[in-house]
Amino acid sequence: MSLPFRLDSLETDRLLALSDGVIAIAITLLVLEITVPEIPPGSTVAILPELVAEQWHEFFGYVLSFLTIGLYWVLHRRVFVHIERHDRGVLWLNLVFLLFVAFIPYATGVFSEYPNTAFGVSFYAVVLALTGLSLTLLWGYASRKQLIEEGLASRTVEIQAIRFLVSPVVFLGSVVIAQFNPTLAIFSWLLLIPLNAVFESRLVASIEDSLTESQTRPQ
């Protein structure tokens, strides 16, 4: 009975296929949340550009969620680049991550409809934060259970974990800010750009150091 289980733990193609499929569908659903404006009775088609311009919050929510889901896809891919095998814990934690990813289009709709309210901003930020936290838990579980590739330095594992935490921390911080100023909370999300860039550069440097050490280590 151990052989089939061992083979199952090494098979990740279906897990990744499901993940990519859910993420792709979530991204596609984002654009379906954008409604086509209707020209009011008695008005001409000349008013259409103005009606489209009034939907700026829907376009903003679409672009923001597209980029955020894209970022989480990149981070999810990074997780499974290093995971060599999995167990039931990895499977269920990955499903939790997909649960939140699939919910992002709805959260985007709430945010797009109420972008200037504390609830609209907070609800959206909490959903994105929970999505990032689930990915952080997945990485932490896999590293703690030693399911990641051998030779990956502990410093690299730690930097990776911190990078996964960046997005949840920023989004949860914006929830507090939104109670006083929803617009400022939205602008605080821009911190994700430099923070992710900093930790990505540190991660790359750490991985390169690990490779250098493994190549110079006596056989």
Rank of each mutant, 00 (worst) to 15 (best):
H86T: 07
D87M: 09
D87L: 08
D87S: 03
D87F: 08
D87G: 06
R88G: 01
R88A: 07
R88Y: 07
R88H: 08
G89P: 00
V90M: 11
L91S: 03
W92K: 06
W92A: 00
W92H: 09
W92I: 10
W92Q: 00
L93H: 07
N94K: 09
N94C: 06
N94M: 07
N94W: 10
V96R: 11
V96F: 15
V96G: 00
V96T: 12
V96I: 15
F97P: 01
L98S: 01
L98D: 02
L99Y: 10
L99H: 02
F100R: 00
F100V: 09
F100W: 15
V101H: 06
V101Q: 02
A102R: 08
F103R: 01
F103L: 15
F103S: 01
I104S: 00
I104H: 06
I104W: 08
P105D: 04
Y106E: 03
Y106S: 02
Y106F: 13
Y106I: 13
A107R: 10
A107P: 08
A107L: 14
A107D: 04
A107Y: 11
T108C: 05
T108W: 06
T108N: 05
G109F: 10
G109S: 14
G109V: 06
G109K: 14
V110A: 03
V110T: 05
V110E: 02
F111K: 02
S112T: 04
S112F: 01
S112A: 15
S112D: 01
E113H: 09
E113I: 02
E113K: 11
E113R: 12
E113P: 01
Y114L: 13
Y114M: 11
P115W: 03
P115S: 04
N116I: 01
N116L: 09
N116A: 04
T117D: 00
T117S: 14
A118Y: 10
A118I: 07
A118S: 15
F119S: 07
F119A: 12
F119W: 15
F119N: 06
G120M: 15
V121S: 06
V121T: 12
V121P: 15
V121I: 15
V121C: 00
S122W: 05
S122Q: 04
F123K: 02
F123S: 09
F123I: 09
F123Q: 02
Y124I: 08
Y124D: 04
Y124N: 05
Y124P: 14
A125T: 05
A125K: 05
A125E: 00
A125D: 12
A125M: 13
A125G: 04
V126A: 10
V127E: 03
V127F: 13
A129V: 11
A129R: 08
L130R: 06
L130N: 01
L130M: 15
L130W: 10
T131M: 15
G132H: 06
G132I: 14
G132N: 07
G132R: 13
G132T: 13
S134R: 14
S134D: 00
S134C: 13
S134G: 10
L135A: 12
L135H: 10
L135S: 05
T136K: 02
T136F: 13
T136V: 07
L137C: 14
L138M: 12
W139Y: 11
G140M: 12
G140K: 11
G140E: 08
G140N: 12
G140Q: 11
G140C: 07
